[in-house]
């Protein structure tokens, strides 16, 4: 699709890197790096994703530049979903019931607001 035939040697190199990175990420999981553990795991996963996308999926070689827009849009939209949901979860306060209504407010003549 790119018009360029990527050499099998390049593919083999990428494959080798992916294997090494996999073993690396499994190995690092057994080291106690505190908060860096998930950081390292995700970083390695992102690198592996980039290798597959750029070389195996020909993102590096395609002349159809719109491909980058589509990929970026997908990733950006996912980031959006995660970011806003995440922000909610970590900034919630416990819900406190409001104080009772005063007796003389304007809606007190309406039946739906009368206490049962």
């Amino acid at each position: 699709m790119s018009g360029v035939t990527v050499s099998r040697k390049t593919y083999a190199g990428v494959w080798g890197s992916l294997v090494v990175l996999t073993l690396l990420t499994a190995g690092i999981a057994y080291l106690d790096l505190g908060v860096l553990n998930p950081v390292a795991a995700i970083t390695i996963a992102v690198i592996k994703m980039a290798l597959v996308a750029l070389f195996f999926m020909h993102l590096r070689y395609t002349r159809i530049r719109l491909t980058y827009v589509f990929t970026a849009a997908g990733l950006l939209w996912l980031a959006l979903l995660m970011a806003f949901t995440w922000t909610d979860v970590i900034t919630r306060h416990p819900i406190v019931p409001p104080p009772p209504w005063p007796a003389n407010d304007v809606t007190s003549h309406m039946s739906i607001f009368k206490a049962k």
């Binding site: 699709m1 395609t62 159809i64 719109l66 491909t67 589509f70 990929t71 849009a73 997908g74 990733l75 939209w77 996912l78 979903l81 995660m82 949901t85 995440w86 979860v89």
Partner: peptide, 25 residues
């Protein structure tokens, strides 16, 4: 065809992404 598949993969990112979001939370 090429762009169509890439666009479809963007939808797949969102599909799995919904579950990933829950996992993260």
């Amino acid at each position: 065809g090429w762009l169509g598949m890439w666009a479809f993969l963007a939808t797949e990112i969102m599909f799995f992404g919904g579950m990933f979001t829950g996992y993260v939370i």
